[in-house]
């Protein structure tokens, strides 16, 4: 492999690693760090990266020009962030070669190792119910909150598959939760609409953008941090509108 091909492989590997991490919810500083590390471990010192939330730019100190990788989607799959991190560590201690690293990354996109759907539903129930008890100390409404939180997550998940606009799915899910809470209390299955809704929307909380936004701003990424803050804010607003719409009928 001549020099140029080697550089091209380094760029490809680093850019793919960066793209996968950003798409699945990593913070900017980690992406920059990982990409520079990959170049360094492959034998190139002084590479330059420019990472924002919608695209990555990387240049090596060689004949090759800088290359761009756009980030088109954003989902929450922290498992993949962790896998890329592991691969980068293995590459650093020379357990895998650069070519193997690149191949593994190319395959990583297609192999999704999500938890099974029933377990996600169960988890949504276990976020809703316990947090309702923790926040509101309302034990009798535990079961109905579990069920409603689970149904809300089901609506969110199914809509996300078909329309792929997260804010709309969040809006529809929270409206569903509101309606179900009203109906549940009306038929005597629960005592407090407020408590059921508070617990039920907890699985929809935009935890990843919230945390990353704070971390990005603190690390000095003044473009990506606020952008993620907007993402979290729009999610929160979508959930709020869904609830507010239902509460008009109180």
């Amino acid at each position: 492999m001549n020099r140029e091909e080697h550089d091209q492989l380094i760029l490809h590997t680093a850019l793919t690693a960066g793209r996968i991490m950003l798409e699945n919810g990593s913070e900017i500083e980690r992406v920059e760090d990982t990409m520079i590390r990959i170049a360094k471990n492959a034998g190139v010192e002084g590479s330059q990266v420019f990472v924002t939330i919608t695209g990555i730019l990387m240049a090596l100190n060689g004949e090759l020009g800088a290359q761009i990788e756009p980030i088109k989607k954003r989902i929450f799959d922290l498992e993949k962030v962790s896998v890329v991190n592991d691969l980068s560590r293995q590459f650093a201690v020379k357990k895998i070669s650069l070519q193997q690293f690149a191949n593994r990354l190319d395959h990583l996109d297609s192999e999704t190792k999500y938890f099974p759907f029933w377990l996600q539903l169960f988890a949504a129930a276990l976020v809703s119910g316990p947090l309702e008890v923790v926040f509101r100390h309302n034990l009798p409404d535990f079961w109905i909150t579990c069920v409603i939180g689970m149904l809300g997550w089901w609506v969110y998940y199914v809509l996300n598959k078909f329309i792929q606009i997260r804010f709309l799915s969040e809006f529809a899910a929270s409206a569903t939760i509101g309606i179900l809470a009203l109906v549940g209390v009306h038929y005597g299955l629960g005592n407090s609409v407020d408590d059921i809704i508070i617990g039920g929307v907890m699985p929809l909380v935009p935890g990843v953008p919230l945390t990353n936004s704070v971390r990005d701003v603190l690390a000095g990424n003044l473009v990506s941090g606020p952008a993620r803050g907007i993402e979290a804010l729009v999610s929160a607003a979508a959930i709020g509108f869904g609830i507010a719409m239902v509460l008009q009928f109180l």
Partner: peptide
Amino acid sequence: AFGILVNI
């Protein structure tokens, strides 16, 4: 449970 939802 929230960890499961974001696939940790």
